[in-house]
């Protein structure tokens, strides 16, 4: 089964640390204007998602969303949630820890795309 969103061990360990402090969590990938394009981590339900958002899947029990029109440009890529050092500038929950969630992308193979579209 091909997943649209996966995570590194470091990302999962950071999610577990944040969940210990904040409870259930969610992610929303911010748009690509200015210095956006970053995964945003919020307490579950704090960011209101609706019909204009797509859920790409779950990582470590957290739903990962993106706006539907952005998904249209991103759907040929698998996203991998990673963690990098450095203080980012956003309201994402990990910021005070001096680390930043980071989205890496990989282009799906034709076989993977066929499998994803079949579901």
């Amino acid at each position: 089964m091909t997943a649209r969103i996966i995570a590194t061990e470091q990302a999962i360990s950071l999610i577990n640390e944040l969940r210990h402090t904040h409870g259930p969590l969610m992610f929303h990938q911010s748009g690509g204007c200015c210095d956006g394009s970053q995964p945003m981590c919020f307490p579950e339900g704090e960011f209101k998602v609706g019909a204009s958002d797509v859920c790409l899947g779950e990582i470590a029990g957290c739903k990962f969303y993106m706006s539907a029109d952005q998904f249209n440009y991103w759907k040929h890529t698998q996203l991998m949630l990673d963690v990098i050092r450095g203080r980012g500038s956003s309201f994402s929950l990990e910021i005070p820890l001096g680390v930043r969630f980071h989205t890496r992308s990989r282009v799906f193979t034709d076989a993977e795309i066929a499998e994803l579209e079949g579901t």
Binding site: D35, S37, I84, G86, G88, H102, R104, S105
Partner: peptide, 19 residues
């Protein structure tokens, strides 16, 4: 300006080449 910006740019170069 920052490591996260640096990493983000390198990730874009990576996806650009993949595409």
């Amino acid at each position: 300006a920052s490591e996260d910006q640096y990493q983000k740019i390198l990730s874009y170069l990576d996806i650009g080449k993949q595409e």
